[in-house]
Design a protein around this nucleic acid. Sequence first.
RNA 1: GUGGGUGUAGCUCAGGCGGUAGAGCACUGGGUUGUGGUCCCAGGAGUCGCGGGUUCGAAUCCCGUCACUCACCCCA
Length: 422
Amino acid sequence: MSTFTAPKGIPEYYPPRSADFLAVRDTLADAARRAGYGYIELPLFEDTGLFARGVGESTDVVSKEMYTFADQGGRSITLRPEGTAGVIRSVIEHGLDRGQLPLKLYYSGAFFRYERPQAGRYRQLQQLGVEAIGVDDPALDAEVIAVADEGYRRLGITGHRIELTSLGDADCRPEYRAKLLEFLRGLPLDEPTRQRAELNPLRVLDDKRPEVREMLADAPLMADHLSAASKEHYERVKTHLSDLGVAFTENPWLVRGLDYYTKTTFEFVHDGLGAQSGIGGGGRYDGLMAELGGAELSGIGFGLGLDRTLLACEAEGVTPAGQSRCEVYCVPLGEAARRHLVRVSGDLRKSGTRVEVAYGGKGLKGAMKSADRSGARFALVVGERDLESGTAQLKDLSSGEQRTVALDGAADEVRAALEASP
RNA sequence: GUGGGUGUAGCUCAGGCGGUAGAGCACUGGGUUGUGGUCCCAGGAGUCGCGGGUUCGAAUCCCGUCACUCACCCCA
């Protein structure tokens, strides 16, 4: 065992798996870009107050899961536990909402939560998120959900499902919330759950313990208490999703851990990751912008867990990283041959060909083995006899066929061979 | 914060009635003086998590400790 180990609960990705991880990020980002979302790069840490205010003091995330510390100047700093608060802060700070709306942004990177790690749950997690700000149009809600669905589709996974509900708005939520709280107070709940109910009764609905679920069977649901406007909004989201061909299931028990969500709320779930089945989630937030000192604008967005999405891919046997790392593997025998092949490899790379060279004192047999493992389609071999005749051996690694080509035109021969057999 | 499981080679693991370690994969070399994928042979590689105890002797039994892991709460 080495002297130093990685901090607890942090996944590390290295070859070959890191290629799939990168492909997950790239593919999901591509889906966002194709729908018109522009990239925003944000700090990994913010003023602690931003999350306390934006995410909500009553959430577990803020109350017990934040990495908070004082910097050299005595400021209270927190490693970001989620993405939306930072995006909104930046939008307000730079007046990004003063142009055409909706403002459509996406971000990707690391987030931090101090929790006990388990399968698919890490202290440093990777997310890709999207925010569409300034327009409260149900069609936009549908677009956001469709972007995630499209990303998953492009990755090649099929085992995910979309759970959808509405959390209501400022007109109907308070009334429902009071009703739910009243119901919960009549239940023989344990003390921590009781406290959670007082803080935010909605979150109790998410409890997974069977005995609690049983007690909750007759709980009042938001879906039955939506205002006319909220209901209309929700119905139109569903209609647009159907028009987009995005399948979803309604789950009236769905609640989210972050306080700012209103109206449309959704979660992407996948079986086969272990107990943590959520691979992404999001929703609309009506009051967040104003809460953080901005205009009275609503927004909608999602956060997709890259680590968990990779696990989902692996559970389905999907490998997002398509192309092999190498197309041509150069095998020089001796220093003189190496000099020629290094030159050829440079030539090939300049034209965009993925090429590797056998370095060090590797024997021919060992070099050919490396060629095989590299996934290359061709090996280009140059030895003493080739140098004398100014030739190289171009071998097709799948068929085993080998032919002699001129060393001078080797790069062109390789390019032609790659074109001829795609 | 609570509960279960596991710590032996780079990786996945076997061994475990106490007698100072094994397999497969990977890596290196050879069988093939210049040709990979299959096969055969050989090689390098481990303070058996750490500390203490019992014992002539501990990877094995006992105690402690740390780490990892799964699950609860909660979340991506």
